[in-house]
Nucleic acid binder design. Structure first.
Length: 266
DNA sequence: ATTGTGGCCTGCCCGC
DNA sequence: TGCGGGCAGGCCACAA
């Protein structure tokens, strides 16, 4: 499912293939998919005739800067991908395989699209409709991006919190970009129990977690996605820790199915 | 305020 | 063979 690495590849695709092209059409057939009070008419009025001028990402939120016709017409289109959303530009998807997404690319799963002058399009394809499109999303609700997070920012995200460490990592308001699979992977690599209270981490553990967070994100992006972690294939009943062979534990932590190794994650 | 829970939504997979 | 139920999880509304 799209976590930070996938959305980063969507951003890259949009940056290389969707910027500067005149928008001549907007297709928003699923009103449920439009968030923040937007509807198809508003999106058409704002987007048509303009162009995307920048592609940014904060956590799992893709932000497309847009310049409309005339002054004072700048806006930002926010795209969320939920767990099965994909970005397709001119028929080319940014990510080939996506865990849990339908194998077939059916047009009825196209939830939102813009058409460009001279042909071509940018499409949000999302079978399960857990993503959404929003105009001028409130970026300040998201914490610092996990990819550029500093150690002190990570410390601040955990400080004083009685919530489980994993719940802190998943809280997009504390830090943005970590989803369920990457949270398990990073905690496994860092040797930290997901059940520890966020505030219980010592400074040296925060530094260690930060190091593994950054390193893991880099590695997962190089490998091609959030599902390419070393723990991933062992997150199933009977799974053993690929580091020490101990049986993995499974529980709901932070509201999500969580797998970890009680032997080395403390 | 902080933390926890349930539900949204659809497709897949298991067991009957 | 078909069908029901459980499950997957990002995100949000709501409860405690």
């Amino acid at each position: 499912m799209p976590e930070l690495p996938e959305v980063e590849s969507y951003r890259s695709l949009a940056a290389s293939a969707a910027l500067g092209r005149e928008i001549t059409g907007v297709s928003a057939p699923d009103s449920w998919y439009l968030k923040g009070g937007a509807d198809a008419a508003i999106l058409r009025a704002r987007l048509i005739g303009g162009r995307f001028t920048g592609a940014r990402r904060r956590g799992k939120l893709l932000l497309l800067d847009h310049r409309g016709t005339g002054p004072g017409r700048d806006s930002v289109l926010g795209l969320r991908f939920g767990m099965t959303g994909r970005l397709v530009v001119d028929g080319v998807a940014a990510v080939d395989g996506l865990l849990y997404s339908a194998s077939t690319n059916q047009a009825r799963h196209d939830r939102f699209a813009v058409g460009f002058a001279g042909g071509g399009s940018m499409v949000v394809h999302d079978p399960r409709r857990l993503g959404g499109v929003e105009l001028d999303p409130d970026e300040s609700r998201l914490g610092p991006d996990a990819l550029t997070l500093t150690p002190s920012q990570l410390g601040a995200a955990l400080a004083g919190s009685a919530a489980p460490l994993k719940a802190c990592l998943l809280d997009q308001g504390r830090l943005a970009g970590v989803g369920n699979l990457i949270a398990d992977e990073v905690l496994w690599r860092a040797g930290l129990s997901p059940q520890r209270a966020g505030r219980s981490l010592e400074p040296f553990e925060i530094r260690r977690l930060h190091r593994h967070l950054r390193r893991s994100l880099d590695e997962l992006m190089r490998r091609g996605g959030s599902h390419t972690g070393d723990l991933q294939e062992h997150r199933l009943p009977g799974g053993l820790c690929p580091r020490d062979g101990s049986p993995l534990a499974r529980a709901t932590v932070g509201g999500r199915t969580t797998w970890w190794c009680p032997a080395h994650q403390r």
